[in-house]
Amino acid sequence: MHQEYTVIEGDFVNAGKASSSVKKTLKQMNVEPSKIKRVVVALYEAEVNAIAHAYGGKVLVDIDSDKIKMVVADKGPGIPDIALAMQEGYSTARPEVRDMGFGAGMGLPNMQKNVDKLNVISEVGVGTTVEMEVNF
């Protein structure tokens, strides 16, 4: 099953729409609740990053019986040093983002913890693509 969503820069009100819809689909498929939580937390973190740090983007989700693949691809400033960004506590979040309860530099490390496969591809001035996989 293939699903696509669009995320818009700064649109915190709709942050999580994609994750929320994926959550419903996985529930209907009777995926184990702890797995669902890992999937949606990771996807939500990536969605929030595309909204908070980039100029929005696309979420592509492919679900089959034994795994889910998620891609969050944004147009944005990119990440100059991915290893640094992956470190817990590193954040360049703006004050507006912090006001929404984000910007602790915990998102990328949290994605890493929740998924079975994580791949972050980024080009400065072009954008960032986060690919994730969770096996059911």
Binding site: F12, V13, A15, G16, S19, S20, K23, P33, I36, K37, V40, V41, Y44, M100, G101, F102
Partner: peptide
Amino acid sequence: GLCNVQTIRTCDMAT
């Protein structure tokens, strides 16, 4: 003490 839609959405995601 954080009271906005994101609070609820985050709770939804974190179950």
